[in-house]
């Protein structure tokens, strides 16, 4: 939030449009931090070589469990913001143009109109939301061992492992995509993007905010 104007953007501030509110950026930062802590501690808990170096199983496990339990909290708090709720609804809705965008080989050329979020971003959001829920549920069963019988705990471990691997890959993909687009990163860092970028990447949304 403090970086506004600290680096020259591709367009003057008057050419910027608002993309994310402060509340949305706070949710993103909190979720990113908690997810990062979960992934790092998960690697230590899962990988034998790392575990033997770091040790302190209980501390690492407690940090992992409580970061995981805290993970949905910023998402739920975000619901207090109308802008956040509206964006969740945009991510939820999937139309014919989205299907075309997903199937198209030339999806980035702008011929298929894209709203505030493209179809890939929508699918990513669904998978992240679902993974978070599944990891939370299975994690609770693994941590509070008295809740269900052993065979279900084995099932929970199985699901938790695979979904965590999937979420890890989604996060890597998310970071790779962001690393290729400085303007998209500026949008999440400062809340503002250039009008030109909005026109190129999200034409329908640019029409909407004009």
């Amino acid at each position: 939030m403090s970086e506004v104007g600290s680096r020259p953007g591709p367009a003057a501030p008057s050419e910027d449009v608002q993309r994310f509110t402060a509340a949305e950026r706070w949710v993103h930062r909190s979720v990113a931090l908690l997810t990062g802590v979960c992934l790092v501690t998960a690697a230590i808990l899962y990988n034998g070589a790392l575990m033997m170096v770091v040790g302190h199983r209980q501390l690492v496990s407690d940090v992992h469990v409580w970061s995981g339990i805290a993970l949905p909290v910023p998402m739920l708090l975000g619901a207090a913001s109308a802008a956040y709720r509206r964006d969740v609804s945009r991510l939820d809705r999937f139309g014919r143009a989205d299907w075309r965008w997903l199937r198209s080989r030339s999806r980035r050329d702008g011929t298929i109109p894209v709203g505030k979020f493209n179809a890939g971003q929508k699918v990513n959001a669904w998978l992240v939301a679902a993974s978070t829920g599944v990891l939370l549920g299975t994690g609770v069963l693994m941590h509070w061992t008295g809740l269900v019988q052993l065979s279900w705990r084995s099932g929970a471990t199985f699901v938790h492992d695979w979904v965590a691997l999937g979420l890890g890959l989604l996060v890597v993909g998310h970071i790779l995509q962001a690393s290729k687009d400085p303007e998209a990163r500026r949008g999440m860092r400062t809340g503002r993007v250039s009008r030109r970028w909005a026109r190129t990447e999200h034409r329908r949304w640019a029409d909407e905010v004009d």
Binding site: R86, D92, R93, F94, F117, L127, A130, R204
Partner: peptide
């Protein structure tokens, strides 16, 4: 939301 964002609530079903 704008026309491009309209459509069925597929996300909710997937989740």
């Amino acid at each position: 939301p704008s026309a491009a964002d309209a459509g069925a609530p597929v996300g909710r079903r997937v989740v």
